[in-house]
């Protein structure tokens, strides 16, 4: 295939022959490319075009209004609040999921049966839909829910987990951590287990304590896993939606609405498709920039290992 593209070779061969050689490649690749273009690339450009209009989603006529939707996104207090809360969730969630995940992974990296059982217990929420996790915790954190029932037995009055702004925000973040640190743990475990045991033997000979071994052998060697974990958690949390919808439905008083919550509500609930599209383009750019920034920032940490 590659050879057909070099001009010297192609000239020697008749054009029909070149195409006959390429045909299987086109037949094999074509359908996937078409589906992907139709469902990903075209919509992405459409999102940008729509973001420059005031289209409401169903009327036949709309006008181009330039970058007004973008200006509105930075002015609109609902959008700004949602962006700030999303940033807080993404930052705290990323830090906590990775801290807890790494800590637990370090504790259960052995091969015993208990460790395998614990791994299962810490990980299982990850395979449950976040919508269902949200409903479950919503039922447990309600004023009459199980958690307040337990606290009541201990003499602690009902805590407004979901009905007071500060508590509700914390509840969202902690529910996310509860449901997904297991994924980070699994990746850390795989990283820790891939460290050759000779390194630890050498470190032990040098008189390094377990903590020093972890700090100076394990951590540098799992730097690439760390990067993957940070990027995946961050990118995933920037688009958090399901769990918020089920847990707080954006409340109380809209304080836990995330940016995707806004986008979907504006686009489909409020029929402001143009405005929704502008917000999603901004989200796309922020996600890509942050994802790449973390990856490049972590390059340094990963390089040190290679040297």
């Amino acid at each position: 295939m590659a050879a057909t593209l070099s001009p010297a070779r192609a000239r020697r061969r008749p054009a029909a022959r070149v195409w006959r050689d390429r045909l299987p490649g086109i037949v094999m690749g074509g359908p996937a490319v078409l589906v992907f273009l139709a469902m990903f690339i075209v919509p992405m450009f459409l999102a940008f075009v729509l973001s420059l209009t005031d289209w409401n989603g169903y009327s036949l006529n709309f006008t181009f209004i330039g970058f007004d939707n973008y200006a509105e996104a930075f002015r609109n207090p609902r959008t700004v609040d949602a962006a700030v809360f999303t940033a807080v969730v993404a930052f705290c969630g990323t830090v906590l999921c990775n801290a807890v995940g790494l800590f637990i992974a370090a504790l259960i990296a052995g091969n015993g049966r208990a460790n395998t059982l614990l791994r299962t217990i810490f990980f299982y929420p990850y395979i449950i839909s976040s919508l269902i996790i949200g409903f479950l915790w919503s039922a447990m954190l309600a004023p009459e829910g199980a958690v307040n029932g337990l606290l009541g037995h201990l003499g602690v009055g009902p805590v407004p987990f979901l009905t007071e702004v500060g508590f509700a925000k914390a509840s969202v973040i902690l529910t996310i951590v509860w449901s997904s640190f297991g994924f980070n743990m699994i990746l850390f475990l795989a990283g820790i287990k891939s460290v050759p045991t000779e390194y630890y033997e050498a470190a032990t000979v040098d008189g390094a304590s377990k903590w020093q071994q972890f700090r100076n052998v394990t951590l540098p060697l799992i730097a690439p896993v760390f990067t993957v974990n940070l990027v995946l958690t961050l990118v995933g949390l920037l688009k958090v939606y399901d769990i918020v919808l089920a847990l707080t439905d954006g409340g109380p008083a809209g304080s836990t609405q995330t940016i995707v919550y806004q986008i979907l509500r504006d686009s489909f609930g409020q029929s402001e498709l143009g405005f929704g599209a502008a917000q999603s383009v901004i989200l796309l750019i922020v996600t890509a920039v942050l994802g790449l920034a973390v990856t490049f920032a972590r390059r340094g940490a990963e390089k040190k290992v290679a040297d």
Binding site: M1, A2, L5, G25, G29, A32, V33, F36, M39, F40, I41, V42, P43, M44, L46, A47, L50, V235, L238, K239, Y241, V260, I263, L264, S267, L273, G276, A277, S280, V281, L283, L284, T287, A288, G291
Partner: peptide, 28 residues
């Protein structure tokens, strides 16, 4: 494949990893 077209094809698909599904849902 070894040509730049094949690399381009791979990059096209991999770019999808960075596009959140919710972002394209409206135009989809």
């Amino acid at each position: 494949g070894r040509s730049k077209w094949h690399l381009g094809l791979l990059l096209l698909f991999v770019s999808g990893l960075f596009i959140p599904g919710q972002v394209t849902l409206i135009p989809v």
